[in-house]
Design a protein around this nucleic acid. Structure first.
Lengths: 302, 302
DNA sequence: TGGGCCGTTGCGATTTCGGAAACAGGGGGC
DNA sequence: GCCCCCTGTTTCCGAAATCGCAACGGCCCA
């Protein structure tokens, strides 16, 4: 919407901390930008940026203003969505932040199903770790977050949660693939392990469990990319750890759940920012997503 | 705020139910309004008004939008209020030193008006003569000084100045009260004079003028209290001298300006200590005060 | 069937906005 | 201490959005 132009300028300067970079991003010149900022500061009767040698930094008044701008934009988006809803076609946009573990099946399946119903609804899917995903919610960069074991936060309102049992993942020819059913963690640890690095919740979960029993981790490979780890176990007899939803349907891969005595299940959470009224399209998608997850994994028993 | 202009247009049309009436209220032409409305409807992709013979009526989408506009305006107002709070405009203290001449109308009016806007701002008003008032500034006992004819001082930074013509003050039944308009000083001097004593700038001003023409002063009463002098002229046919701003609105009193040939006008000065950065609340008050004085007495022509 | 009200449109004038380049000021490296 | 680079800011000018004016077409009511 046109009237948000100036506010967008402020938000962009705040985001980049510099007029010149923001101007480049906005496809205008720094001079135009500096004037708009000055106009706003004049209107408010107080500066909203602190001028430092490195650029512009928000002051307290500016913090309040950019929060307002974010709220205002989100609210307008909600209104537009409601209006579009009235006119029959459901259109809108869904911004989702999710963990890597869900880029294989869960999210693409759901997005596809929803877009089959409402082709006018568009999506952005950002892959973030569990900490960044929550941050994306609070900064209005995402409407919804689907993450494993997020840090507890009062800002987060859980729309759905369930338990996911970690699985040992290996290639089809691997010795552990000879049997099916749960596998003990110690049977995995004798093999070279290809595990997520500490940016991922799975690794934290694993470390916690190992620390409690003093078992050493023989981490041959660690990576921030689950996809890389999967590709690795296809090439050598290493064992990786992934949640079921992150395991693609590939006959060359084999997975067995880790015995619950060794590793408690992880929590899978679909959440939004607490207190936010989502746009119609987004709310509807969240609703269907929660239902779909329930159907797939069942409700949380905790 | 500027960016709300277009939204205000929508709200106003919604309120009046007609573009022409709304346009009149907004001080623009109907053509400008109708185009802005069309722009918004184009952006939203749907009409927000239903065109009827009597004018414009909101449809469902419009209802949603005007609710958003109301919310948005209220939220912005809240943010502005918070910003004002932390910038200190709202709460604070103003220490003012002023001459006796301003305790009747000028200062109380201004303090009342400002406190109506910012009830959290407190005041101390010290009545000082023109010399003491400047001293109060330099000693940080006062933030602002409003005085007549202060001694020139490099420490003083003038925020506003104008001219005040001295007036002869007498009771309603006095012979001089029979006429109106300027009065010559010699016509006053034939009556018993009730004049300020030498602690007040008015007296210095009067003495200077009399000394230049060698006229004697028949000072029956002199006092450091303008209020006392006023009470005196109510009781006998004496004549006092005061500046217009010191004369209360009392039907029993009558005043006539002294002819400019006899007494040049005195200068009224609002000043602060040079180089001092006043607290926000104080600076804001000084600003409004200067504007208000300008409106009352006009700018200084010297 | 006019008159009055309504919103809307074309066009010229005004205001606002943005772009290019020069300016001013503060680090950081030499 | 000097120089270079990066920062925001200012100035001048052209471009674009906005507005005002006048005219038009539609609707209601007397």
């Amino acid at each position: 919407m046109k009237h948000l132009r100036i506010l967008t300028y402020v938000a962009e300067v705040a985001r980049h901390g510099a007029i010149r970079r923001a101007a480049e991003r906005l496809n205008i010149t720094p001079s135009a930008l500096t004037r708009q900022i000055q106009d706003i500061e004049y209107e408010l009767g107080t500066p909203i940026f602190e001028r430092v040698a490195q650029g512009m930094r928000l002051n307290a008044a500016g913090e309040l203003l950019v929060r307002h701008i974010r709220d205002q934009r989100a609210d307008l988006e909600r209104v537009r969505s409601q209006i579009a809803d009235l006119s029959g076609v459901r259109r809108g946009h869904v911004a989702l932040a999710c963990s890597q573990a869900f880029v294989n099946h869960v999210v693409p399946d759901e997005v596809e199903a929803y877009r089959a119903l409402f082709p006018q609804v568009t999506f952005t899917v950002q892959v973030r770790d569990h900490v960044q995903a929550v941050a994306a919610l609070t900064q209005f960069e995402a409407d919804l977050a689907l993450v494993l074991q997020p840090p507890p936060s009062a800002d987060m309102q859980v729309l759905f949660s369930c338990r996911q049992t970690l699985c040992a993942l290996m290639r089809a020819g691997h010795p552990l693939a000879a049997e099916t059913g749960p596998v003990r963690l110690r049977d995995c640890l004798v093999h070279p392990m290809a595990v997520p690095d500490r940016s991922l919740a799975i690794r934290h979960h694993l470390d916690d469990a190992l620390a409690r029993r003093g078992a050493p981790l023989n981490a041959v490979i660690e990576s921030s990319s689950l996809e890389f780890l999967r590709n690795l176990v296809l090439r050598e007899d290493a064992v990786s750890l992934q949640v079921p939803s992150g395991i693609p349907d590939d006959p060359r891969l084999c997975s067995r759940p880790i015995d619950a005595r060794d590793l408690p299940p992880m929590s899978l959470i679909l959440a939004q920012l607490r207190g936010r009224t989502l746009p119609v399209a987004t709310a509807k998608f969240a609703d269907r997503f929660a239902g779909s997850l329930h159907q797939r994994y069942g409700a949380d028993v905790s």
